[in-house]
């Protein structure tokens, strides 16, 4: 079976590009503001978005773009990774328990102190009862992510694979996401992914 990169998307520095073309740019001053504007640009109604942490918001926006045209219930595996895991939200949560006089641990914050929650959010949004994993590595590990993706496809455990690198820590964020599919114009290979990632 031959595989292609169906769609890919970069989100960083207040801009979103899709397949290398500009899709959205914003003058937002904070990360949450930027994410909210990007959500509005998508013109979807998904109130749960506002309850999510930054990483899940980033995952939701990028998957909305890359899974466009994919039907709910298709066998699309999710393979996400990053470097900081959920540290951005971990820092928030730690603050909520650090003062004995103001000790009110928040369940709605705590639940996002696991990096794979964003995988769950995308699975719920797109009805994906599929293979999913969240890995953490110092940088985007094209070798292992590629081997894992190819395993899922060759073993028949998935028909398509959505791969995401979702880094969020305080004011820094970066998202790179692509859908590996049997359809598309860019032939899929590890080298191709590295080339596109560095664009």
């Amino acid at each position: 079976m031959e595989y292609f990169i169906h769609t890919y998307c970069h989100i960083k520095e207040n801009t979103i590009s899709v397949n290398g073309e500009p899709f959205f740019a914003s003058a937002a001053l904070t990360v949450p503001e930027f994410l909210k504007e990007a959500y509005q640009k998508l013109a979807i109604s998904y109130p749960k978005f506002h309850k999510m942490d930054k990483m899940s918001k980033l995952a939701l926006i990028s998957s909305e773009i890359t899974l466009k045209g994919v039907e709910n219930g298709e066998n699309v595996a999710l393979v996400f990774s990053n470097c900081a895991a959920s540290l951005d939200t971990d820092i928030n949560y730690q603050e909520s328990i650090s003062l004995p006089d103001n000790y009110y641990p928040s369940p709605a914050v705590f639940v996002y102190t696991l990096p794979n929650i964003c995988v769950g959010e995308v699975s719920i949004r797109h009805g994906l009862n599929t293979e999913n994993a969240f890995f953490v590595s110092a940088g985007f590990d094209a070798d292992k992510i590629n081997a894992y993706t190819e395993y899922l496809l060759q073993s028949g455990k998935a028909e398509k694979v959505l791969v995401g690198w979702l880094e969020v820590l305080e004011n820094n964020y970066e998202c790179f996401m692509y859908l590996v599919d049997t359809k598309g114009s860019i032939p899929y290979s590890k080298q191709q992914i590295i080339t596109i990632y560095n664009r």
């Binding site: 794979n116 969240f134 081997a147 395993y151 060759q154």
Partner: peptide, 27 residues
């Protein structure tokens, strides 16, 4: 080389599965 599996409470089982998959792919 190192890789982390951080997938909530299934991490331990998934880490073993990940080792299996990467070995199967000869990575």
């Amino acid at each position: 080389d190192a890789l982390v599996v951080s997938n909530a409470c299934v991490s331990g089982v998934m880490a073993v599965g990940t080792a299996k998959r990467l070995i199967q792919m000869e990575e």
